[in-house]
């Protein structure tokens, strides 16, 4: 066995952990399939009656839905490791400082590993099956090779933005006694505003034009619409730049909260 970089090693552990639960993996795939199908049925009903006012190509929307289902674990807001909350609340996080890696980087890697490993187990079957489905239901190929490349880049940036957001929630525990309240409020709001429930183009124009410039627009919305060419040209460049900006801003903010929180903890003596 070769030696792994510590961050890669997290990924390997998460993958092994995920593979232990094979029934859970299949169940997850089936569940996401069903939900995706129901969504498509709903939008098809809308499309049938209102073709002229439909704000996206139906084929693009169908791809949006399947990609979201396939990469759900990568992009959702609720992929937490609950022991990390406890670690902060109990003050045991101070012990993590003994390890030879920075806390922010380590937890960022842990969260990214959690997401990537969960998605890795599930996206394959969903992508393959949904690509094989007949015309109105199936996943469509990307708009172009260029769009596909931009999609991959944007997907990685989205993972970064989402992880940075999760870390802010983790580290906010330095300041509140219980993380549960914050989570139960923040998760549904984020899920809604980032387009995971209703894609941004289907929201009222004033709302979606504001959301574009917020961190929410830099999450699932970006890669999934780039894939089908719904975002292209100048808008594409702008979207990618916004993603880079939010990744930097949220990472910076998270790191700062962590830094100050740890300082406070050390002063109080845990």
């Amino acid at each position: 066995m070769g030696r792994f970089h510590p961050h890669l090693s997290f990924f390997r552990m998460q993958l092994i952990k995920g593979l232990q639960y094979r029934t859970a993996a299949w169940a997850g795939i089936f569940t996401q399939f069903f939900w995706g199908f129901m969504q498509i049925q709903l939008y098809r009903a809308l499309y049938a009656a209102h073709q002229s006012t439909f704000p996206m190509a139906l084929s693009g929307l169908v791809s949006y839905i399947w990609l979201r289902q396939a990469f759900l674990a990568l992009l959702n807001t609720w992929s937490y490791e609950y022991e990390l909350f406890d670690m902060i609340l109990s003050g045991n996080v101070a012990l993590e400082l003994c390890r030879p890696v920075g806390l922010y980087g380590m937890w960022f890697a842990r969260n990214a590993a959690l997401r990537v490993s969960r998605a890795a187990l599930r996206c394959g079957p969903i992508l393959i099956i949904s690509a094989l489905l007949p015309a109105p239901w199936g996943l469509n190929p990307p708009a172009s090779w260029g769009a596909f490349a931009a999609f991959l880049l944007s997907l990685i940036l989205t993972l970064g933005v989402t992880c940075a957001m999760t870390l802010i929630v983790y580290f906010s525990c330095f300041y509140t006694l219980s993380s549960q309240g914050l989570r139960t409020v923040l998760d549904p709001v984020t899920e809604f505003l980032n387009g995971a429930i209703v894609p941004l183009p289907f929201m009222p124009a004033w709302l979606s034009s504001v959301l574009r410039y917020t961190p929410f627009g830099a999450m699932v919305n970006a890669p999934l619409r780039i894939y089908s060419g719904d975002i292209r040209g100048m808008e594409l460049t702008e979207t990618l730049l916004l993603q880079v900006f939010w990744l930097a801003a949220l990472t910076g903010l998270g790191w700062l909260i962590q830094h100050r929180g740890l300082k406070r903890l050390c002063l109080q003596g845990g």
Partner: peptide
């Protein structure tokens, strides 16, 4: 029974 290691975990699927 489960055995350790990534490859064995895949096989156990």
């Amino acid at each position: 029974r489960r055995s350790g290691g990534l490859i064995k975990a895949v096989a156990a699927l």
